[in-house]
């Protein structure tokens, strides 16, 4: 592993597989234990530096670090020195001076983790930067697919929805294709970036045509603020054309699964009957998130196995 996890695009197949395998080993090591904790990162300090509200991701990282026995500091930008105008650089240097070994950063600006990595000596983990990447989400998604389908090579994945603004989509495009999956992006053209043609994926505007030919459907959250910016005419029309309801779920191959990074807009991009169905991996994804983030922190901080640097 490298010193930082800044983007899934950085991960080669060996690195990505190492994270997934390590997550699996951690999960087995903890299975059946009364005390779900490993001593690996005792005495190390992990800072969760969150410039955006994200209770789910923050809790997941916090649990991951605590289960590895690290000390965890949660630093939320709201109500802190940041709201008094402190720069990202000054905040980072302050945290490092207090002895942080790793900074897990969530930031509304694309590339903020890359800047941070230039300023601090410790490890930086990207927990979501703007509309760029969210690499641990993609790792937990890949882990979940492998868990459910037994493989990633040749798995056909449709990523459906607001690709333009989605860091989850970007990270999954790079990671899943690196791991051998075939990715199709499905969205109205307004929600695909200009330049998507240079990505190693297929693109479709027609969800109904894609569904019968996929093993995984990954639904993306549609943000409320997109609705007033002419990306699509109305929530109802979006839902009719790109929402996953029971009728559409029925045309999926028998063992196909349905994923969502959460939080869901039930009734918008995904119907309740789909989210709660046996095909849905949404709850598994949340649980796997902790294992995968443990693996990432372990590999970055705990000393990687021989031969990997």
């Amino acid at each position: 592993m490298k010193r930082h996890l800044l983007e899934a695009a950085d991960l080669d197949r060996a690195d990505a597989t190492l994270v997934l395998d390590t997550a699996g080993q951690i999960e087995s090591a903890l299975a059946g234990r009364e005390v779900k904790k490993l001593p690996t990162l005792r005495g190390r300090t992990v800072v969760n530096l969150f410039y955006e509200d994200s209770t789910r991701t923050r809790i997941s990282f916090e649990l991951a670090a605590k289960r590895l026995s690290a000390d965890v500091i949660n630093f939320s930008a709201k109500g802190s020195s940041v709201s008094k105008g402190e720069s990202l650089k000054d905040t980072a240097l302050t945290l490092e001076a207090m002895g942080s070994d790793a900074i897990v950063i969530r930031h509304q600006a694309s590339g903020a983790p890359h800047r941070l990595a230039r300023w601090v000596k410790g490890s930086v983990v990207n927990a979501g930067d703007g509309t760029h990447e969210h690499p641990t989400q993609a790792l937990l998604d890949a882990y979940t697919i492998r868990q459910r389908l037994g493989r990633l090579d040749g798995v056909r994945v449709a990523i459906v929805g607001d690709v333009l603004h989605s860091r989850v989509a970007r990270s999954n495009v790079w990671l899943l294709t690196t791991l051998g999956a075939e990715v199709t992006l499905v969205a109205p053209p307004t929600l695909l970036p200009v330049g998507v043609g240079s990505w190693p994926v297929a693109v479709s505007y027609d969800l109904d045509a894609v569904l019968p030919k996929v093993d995984v459907v990954m639904m993306l959250r549609v943000q409320a603020e997109r609705m007033n910016a002419s990306f699509f005419p109305s929530a109802r029309e979006y839902s009719r054309r790109y929402g996953l309801d029971g009728r559409r779920m029925a045309v999926l191959p028998d063992d196909a699964i349905v994923m969502h990074p959460g939080p869901m807009n039930r009734g918008m991009e995904i119907a309740a009957e789909v989210a709660d169905s046996a095909r849905s991996t949404i709850v598994d994804q949340v649980g796997n998130g902790v294992s995968v983030r443990m693996a990432v922190l372990y590999l970055l901080l705990g000393g990687a196995p021989e031969g990997t640097t």
């Binding site: 695009a9 694309s110 590339g111 930067d129 703007g130 509309t131 760029h132 990447e133 860091r167 970007r170 970036p193 200009v194 330049g195 998507v196 043609g197 240079s198 990505w199």
Partner: peptide, 18 residues
């Protein structure tokens, strides 16, 4: 807008300037 809109802005997640 943050950078030229094209292949690189798509990947970097920076708002494109067409």
């Amino acid at each position: 807008a943050q950078m030229n809109e094209g292949d690189r802005s798509a990947r970097l997640g920076l708002v494109g300037w067409p």
